[in-house]
Design a binder for these strands. Structure first.
Length: 850
RNA sequence: GCCGGUGUGGCGAAAUGGCAGACGCAACGGACUUAAAAUCCGUUGAUGGGAAACCAUCGUGUCGGUUCGAGUCCGACCACCGGCACCA
């Protein structure tokens, strides 16, 4: 079936793709290269690089990639040196799972998937600089991932300078307690089915994000990254970024800063103390009991003999629950009394100490003072176990004090009485500090980053163990590749698969290699830096290249100028990458403190049934089928025409046909088919002047497309180009200047078509030199945008009554007179008094009457 | 529960506080064609009136407010989508 296409895209699209590749058309020269032009400003536009899955490219990928590609192409035409690279986030579970099932090495699967993705991307005509392609699994790449890990291992966060410094500047006697990469025995999220631990961020509703398997808590020795030291800077330095407010908020909430106080409660019997964190130290007089997390280390110490059986039973019950069950049971409070009492430091009251699973070991100190009168959870618990409730805050207005958690006036609180909440907080903190039983304190929800995984297909840690101590592998021994293995299965014990490679593990008589590997996030934390200088064998990126592409300049804010990807990375990748970037910045390796200046999230594309695309629903659209039917330009154009980039929107094949017809109309503007079925230049084409109306449309289109590109409003830019084409389709004479302008403006959107039309026109007419994609971006003349006459609206009390034509330079008085003389206006104001007349030049006249 | 986002024709959508519905889809009518497809030209928010070009009224989730004028700004509410969720 060789049905004739309305324009010959199957022939020319692949031809241009080959041509661009062969000529290196989109290669961006680095400083120091002969082709480098230092006078050009830089523009770094980046996609979130994909995990090359076995499913191939999705139309969702194509949306974001098309947006960045349009901008990259436009910026080149506007005289920028554009860095627009692509690579592969190719470590990851699916390849390893597949290897376990089939015995095929993940490297083989990964290479196959990468080849497929690359071919698909090239088949859409994206203008990536393919000479910069990288893969996180390439030893030449992960050498530097490991090197960055060593920088983390070899440095600490100095609170005095508020930045990372080499560990040598640390004056304490245990450097291992402050390293940014450290080892800890701690309860982790163990997933039996995957045979690995997971980060908090990788768990959704108590199950693994990948595969949805159950996850349990289990103490294990793990590598951790001290991201919590950067909590405040990760919040503060969001301010200067051009990111969606919602993403900034998501990050702030995830970091979860709260201000309060640390308070020390002495035990009534015995000499140990319990420390609690509270955001409401002003309610200390209302603390009528305390609660420890069931896992709290003090529990065995304070529990009385009489209560030890019930406490142990409760602990056992809680620890057997998965996180899912524990949060599922949130509705009913449970807990047991330890038999111990503590002393409230402000009033000497003996208050009972309980354990309960509503207190989490992972937040604050794992212990709380309970103020049931002014905390919902404490109140509920006190109700369940008949504990006393004492009011210490008087709410404003009529609100009832019981369970009131807002600000009010302190009562029943001795020296705090009468103070409003914020003042009471300050007073009590000063009081606690004077007596050494407490202090002001900022607390964060953010946990340190669990950085090791028990997998094969990841970066091995450049770490050696000797006599129970860890030390860094010498930099000269990087990259450290995984051993060759046939058996990738998890051991089931928590011991990583690499442990099975006995020869590899043995480094020397005394030393063994670390057998954990890094999580998938590691490689994606810094890939944007490697793109600056991907081949550099001696540094993660050459200093000149890093400075040029990442620094600010008068035309760019610095860092990656535009970063486009999905919201799913709002708190994972984007937080981790910022953290690594800041460490490298602090250590003097980078020129900016933030990696991504402008961030845009593309919306999800739904199936044509309005539901999320999924195999089970059968509503998945493959880019390949769209390309074979309508061509790559139609795919690109439709994805941009669907609606605003950031919005969720459903797919429609009818919509694809719509833009396809538009492209065919563009083609027929210039060519028609002769008797032999060949496309020849249309006889309507001529080197002719624009009519006034044509000039207006041409200049309005240049203006609109130029401005809409800055705002990433591609849908309206395309709509304007459709207006342009509609205007010239009916014209008996089509000025070649219109074609030149249109093909230039459209070429970032539909590059194959424009390139083809440009050279075909060039064969018949003068003024079509070079390539469409190499033309300078056109400018426009404001003066040509407005007709000599404009239509204005005539309103009475804001209501439209008539429309009239006036000269574009008509004075306010003339417009007003015209309005008052208008029969329809006269009819509407008949018998009423004109209060005033508002004239908006070129827009409307509004007559206000009473 | 808390936080965020979105509500406009049959559908995707557009609109610096100034003529609501640009552009596209779908639908309908016409031209071309033996016919169909493709293409080209036109109509298309709702209701009522008119033979007709046209006229009137209503209309951006709901209710209120600010304003000469509100899809747009402010307040309250409703619905849907997303995120977080015993964080002391």
């Amino acid at each position: 079936m060789s049905q004739r296409k309305p324009f010959p895209f199957p022939e020319f699209e692949s031809r241009w793709q080959k041509e661009w590749l062969a000529s290196g058309a989109f290669r961006a020269p680095n400083p120091g290269e002969p082709a480098f032009d230092a006078a050009k400003p830089k523009y770094y536009v980046l996609d979130m690089f994909p995990y090359p899955s076995g499913d191939g490219l999705h139309v969702g990928h194509v949306e974001g990639y098309t947006a960045t590609d349009i901008l990259a192409r436009a910026r080149r035409m506007q005289g920028f040196n554009v860095l627009h690279p692509m690579g592969w986030d190719a470590f990851g579970l699916p390849a390893e799972q597949f290897a376990i099932k089939t015995g095929q090495h993940p490297r083989v699967t990964t290479a196959r998937n990468v080849a497929r993705f690359r071919a698909q991307l090239q088949g859409i005509g994206f203008s990536y600089d393919w000479s910069r392609e990288i893969s996180t699994t390439d030893p030449g790449y992960f050498k530097w991932t490991q090197w960055i890990f060593l920088q983390l291992y070899g440095s600490w966060f100095n609170p005095a300078t508020n930045r990372a410094e080499p560990i040598a500047t640390y004056a304490g006697n245990d450097p291992n307690s402050v390293r940014l990469a450290y080892v800890a025995e701690m309860p982790v999220n163990w997933c039996q089915a995957l045979g690995t631990v997971l980060a908090n961020e990788e768990i959704v509703e108590g199950r693994s994000e990948v595969g949805g398997f159950p996850v349990e808590r289990r103490p294990m020795r793990q590598w951790m990254l001290r991201i919590t030291d950067y909590a405040q800077r990760l919040i503060d330095e969001l301010d200067g970024l051009d990111w969606p407010e919602s993403i900034k908020l998501l990050q702030r909430n995830w970091i979860g800063r709260s201000e309060g106080a640390l308070v020390t409660f002495a035990m009534a019997d015995g000499d140990c103390v319990i420390e609690v964190f509270t955001t409401r130290p002003d309610t200390l007089f209302g603390a009528t009991y305390m609660v420890l997390a069931p896992e709290h280390p003090l529990v065995p110490q304070i529990t009385t003999a009489e209560k030890s059986a019930s406490v142990a039973a409760y602990q056992a019950k809680v620890s057997s629950k998965s996180d899912l069950e524990r949060t599922d049971l949130a509705k009913e409070k449970s807990g047991v009394f330890t038999g111990a009492f503590a002393v409230n430091p402000v009033n000497g009251a003996r208050i009972p100490v309980w354990i309960a699973d509503y207190v989490l070991m992972g937040y604050g100190t794992g212990a709380i003072m309970a103020v049931p009168a002014h905390d919902e959870r404490d109140f509920e618990f006190a109700q369940t176990f008949a504990l006393p409730v004492v009011q210490v805050v008087q709410p404003p207005g009529e609100a009832h004090w019981q369970g009131f958690t807002g600000d009010g006036i302190a009562v029943n609180s001795d020296f705090l009485d009468g103070l409003p909440t914020p003042e009471a907080k300050r007073r009590i903190i000063a009081w606690l500090e004077e007596r050494g039983v407490g202090a002001g304190r900022v607390n964060y929800k953010l946990r340190d980053w669990l950085f090791s995984r028990q997998r094969y297909w990841g970066e091995p840690f450049p770490i050696l163990w000797e006599n129970g101590f860890h030390r860094a592998l010498d930099e000269a021994e990087l990259p450290l590749a995984q051993p060759e293995m046939d058996d990738f299965k998890p051991t089931g014990t928590g011991e990583p698969p690499l442990a099975k490679a006995v020869d590899w593990v043995r480094y020397s008589d005394g030393a063994r290699r670390e057998t954990n590997t890094m999580p998938q996030w590691a490689g994606s934390c810094w890939y944007y830096l490697r793109f600056c200088d991907p081949e550099n064998p001696g540094r993660f990126a050459g200093q000149d290249a890093e400075r040029y592409w990442m620094s600010g300049n008068p035309k760019s804010t610095g860092g990656v100028d535009l970063y486009v990807g999905g919201t799913e990375h709002a708190v994972l990748h984007l937080l981790y990458a910022r953290f690594w970037h800041k460490v490298l910045f602090d250590l003097g390796y980078l020129s900016t403190p933030e990696p991504f200046q402008r961030l845009v999230n593309q919306g999800i594309i739904l199936g044509d049934d309005g539901h999320k695309m999924s195999k089970s629903r059968g509503n998945v659209v493959s880019p390949d089928e769209v390309i074979s039917e309508y061509g790559a330009d139609s795919l690109r154009l439709y994805e941009m025409f669907m609606g605003p980039l950031e919005q969720m929107k459903p797919w429609s094949m009818k919509g694809v046909e719509g833009v396809f017809r538009f492209l065919a109309r563009v083609w027929r503007l210039a060519f028609e088919e002769n008797q032999e079925g060949q496309w020849i230049p249309s006889p309507a084409l001529a080197e002719a002047e624009f009519t006034g109306q044509q000039a207006r449309v041409v200049h309005a289109t240049i203006k609109k497309v130029t401005e809409d590109l800055e705002a990433l409003s591609f849908n309206t830019a395309i709509a304007q180009m459709m207006i342009f084409v509609n205007e010239f389709t009916g014209a008996p004479v089509r000025p070649l200047g219109a074609l030149r302008t249109l093909l230039t403006l459209l070429s970032p959107f539909a590059p194959h078509l424009c390139e083809e039309m440009w050279v075909r026109l060039g064969a018949a007419f003068a003024g079509f030199d070079g390539l469409a994609s190499r033309q300078p971006w056109p400018g426009y003349d404001e003066a040509l945008l407005i007709d000599n006459e404009v239509e204005i609206a005539l309103q009475v009390n804001g209501k439209l009554r008539d429309r009239v034509m006036v000269a574009k330079n008509a004075t306010q008085a003339e417009c007003e007179a015209l309005a008052l003389a208008n029969p329809k206006v006269r009819e509407a104001i008949e018998g009423k008094t004109v209060v005033k007349v508002i004239v908006v030049p070129g827009k409307l006249v509004n007559v206000v009457v009473k």
